[in-house]
């Protein structure tokens, strides 16, 4: 355990735990757009910036992203100085120029008193805030199907060489984790379309409802040894099946008893 000071309060935390986790445990609300529990922090949104210093730094201080700075003994952390709020406001201002249509961005910008951007709205901008949550979750999944392609301002999330990603299994993790819901997909007639690819959905053997894509089921079978026939029936039908089987046993027991 290490001891730090956060906004004037002495706080203990496990050595090396990222500051953002510690700060939030204290009930302090530090904003972040690219942070998600299931993926490694990446420090792209810069909203969780905090000011750190130490006694022995003789007044020198620096700004670090709290999601990517490990706790250490003697750290003095400030989370809401006027300078930091100004930086966060400017960053939201930039986001607002890039993603004017995103509700999440609008909501967060409003917290800093921004209703419209001070900058030029980017004509080709979509609601992608480039938080990399989708690429990081795909990495955790072990597929690495999508990544950021191109550079700088032209950067977009896509498959390799901006083509449909061959390693995608249509699991929708990327679309689900996306904080601004920009990843488009749709299920239709037993297929799922995402990232320019179309996947077969397994249909429930009994009721015909779509379950998961066949590629995802294959991947789970291969990686986690889940028997293939588990994926053949939907959860609704499986529950009815369970009730029927258990009920059968109850009836049998009653019969035996009488």
């Amino acid at each position: 355990m290490v001891q730090m000071t956060i906004n004037g309060k002495v706080v203990k935390a496990p050595d090396g735990e990222m500051l953002l986790t510690v700060i939030r445990r204290q009930g302090i609300d530090v904003p972040a757009l690219c942070d998600h529990a299931a993926v490694e922090p990446c420090g792209s949104c810069r909203m969780c910036l905090v000011e750190i210093t130490r006694e022995d730094w003789n007044g020198w201080k620096k700004y670090v992203t709290s999601c990517l700075y490990p706790s250490e003994n003697g750290l003095i952390v400030s989370t809401h100085t006027p300078e930091l709020q100004e930086i966060r406001r400017n960053i939201m201002d930039l986001y607002l120029a890039r993603c004017p249509g995103s509700e999440l961005v609008q909501k967060m910008a409003e917290e800093y008193g921004l209703t419209r951007t001070s900058y030029k709205t980017i004509p080709e901008g979509d609601n992608c805030i480039m938080c990399y949550a989708c690429t990081r979750i795909c990495e955790v999944l072990g597929r690495n199907a999508i990544s950021a392609v191109h550079r700088g301002h032209a950067k977009v999330i896509s498959g390799p060489f901006d083509d449909p990603p061959p390693d995608c299994i249509g699991c929708l993790s990327c679309a689900n984790i996306c904080p601004t819901d920009v990843i488009e997909w749709h299920d239709q007639d037993g297929t799922r379309a995402i990232w320019g690819r179309t996947f077969d959905l397994i249909s429930c053997r009994q009721c015909g409802k779509g379950i998961i894509t066949r590629d995802f089921a294959e991947y789970l079978k291969e990686k986690r040894q889940i028997p293939a026939d588990y994926f053949e029936i939907c959860d609704d039908c499986k529950r009815v099946e369970l009730a029927r089987k258990m009920g059968g046993l109850v009836d049998l027991a009653k019969e035996v008893a009488s």
């Binding site: 998600h36 529990a37 299931a38 979750i137 699991c171 929708l172 993790s173 689900n176 984790i177 397994i202 379950i211 998961i212 995802f216 089921a217 789970l220 986690r224 889940i226 588990y230 994926f231 029936i233 939907c234 959860d235 609704d236 039908c237 499986k238 529950r239 099946e241 369970l242």
Partner: peptide, 17 residues
């Protein structure tokens, strides 16, 4: 916080639970 709603568990549970 960690769940991304991929529904692997929903599909994998043999009892649909």
């Amino acid at each position: 916080d960690r769940c991304v709603n991929c529904r692997a568990c929903v599909a994998a549970c043999p009892f649909g639970c």
